[in-house]
Design a protein around this nucleic acid. Sequence first.
DNA 1: GCGACTCCTGTACCGGCGGTGCGGTTCCCT
DNA 2: AGGGAACCGCACCGCCGGTACAGGAGTCGC
Lengths: 203, 203
Amino acid sequence: MRKGEETRVRILEVAEAAVLAKGFGGTSIDELIAETGITKSGFFYHFRDKNELAKALLYRYIEADEKIYDDIFGRARELVDDPLQSFLLGLKLLSELLADLPNGHPGCLVATMCYYERAFDREIQAINREAALMWRRRFRGMFEEITAVHTPREPLDVDQLADMVSTVVEGGIVISKALKEPRALADQVLVFRTLVKLLFHPM
Amino acid sequence: MRKGEETRVRILEVAEAAVLAKGFGGTSIDELIAETGITKSGFFYHFRDKNELAKALLYRYIEADEKIYDDIFGRARELVDDPLQSFLLGLKLLSELLADLPNGHPGCLVATMCYYERAFDREIQAINREAALMWRRRFRGMFEEITAVHTPREPLDVDQLADMVSTVVEGGIVISKALKEPRALADQVLVFRTLVKLLFHPM
DNA sequence: GCGACTCCTGTACCGGCGGTGCGGTTCCCT
DNA sequence: AGGGAACCGCACCGCCGGTACAGGAGTCGC
């Protein structure tokens, strides 16, 4: 890794923590450069403006997020053959991972950007939309495999069912933060897991 | 209503729309007073600082939110005797209400404040927590009534089940905003409704 | 060894924003 | 007529995002 790349990553790390804690508008560049140990000029060498910082943060976050899902559900796929059982195991692993976060989930950058909407340019909104669509595609694929083997007790649109995974995670993060109960998120994932299990439970 | 109260409410209305659209940090006081047609001094006559504006916004929002839930689930309770059927009807009515919002759900202020955390004082965090607990109490009451009559096919904690309603709404809002599909929120509520129906479906 | 490029630092400056302070002024209520 | 509620007007502060530009240290190929 080149030296410039190192600095860039360091800025992004500091910025991600700050943005998730205080929101994007609540995070000042002065504060970021103080903690990173560079100057303002240095910051603007790496990012044209705050908007470009947001973009870089989002890309980084989504990439890491995708990797986590790849790992968890990939491992679940290896361990269990049946797509339903594999998905349920994946949710269990996800729940455990979320429960093990020391200070609770730090928050989702996609959600943060959603609640900042008009202050950003269209490109960021497009990235955000693409992230949500990636989640949808991922879980729709799983539900398609499941419905190929198991008949749901009630007919449900696979896209909507897939979105429900994201909904539960995003909603769980909000409720968890509001309640100041870090466990809540992991619990919500488990409740959803039980409901999915019931949906495909043989008559 | 006194004249001062009128102005105060007008500021709050303008502020709520702006905050939900651009986040709290992205909303400037100058912008609020321009749209409200008062001066900066006038604004600070009503609110000591931006923090107090946030508090007033939250109180107002939560009150309106509670009223909506009271109306919807109160009406559902009148129309149907069985607590399960009544709750399912309530979710249906809620879904319809959400689907009829012309530009989609404007966003939840509680969630906005969650993603702004450390920038606010403890009081606001406490109000936020209280809002989430109010939701929990409301829906736990309903699930207790339901479980008194119907046996769930899987044992689930009533608090966690109650939180699931808030989770689906909050998560649905985020996903809906990210996808730029206003329908998504209403659909997620309906998917949740189907899952609850299955949970209490007789064997 | 030289030039070019990367990766910054330093300094100066701008306008917007949150916020303070304080001296009016208008209008309604008693 | 007096007083408080509900503002207006204006001056001022420090922080923040952003611009502009000059310069310097290290690295690389030639």
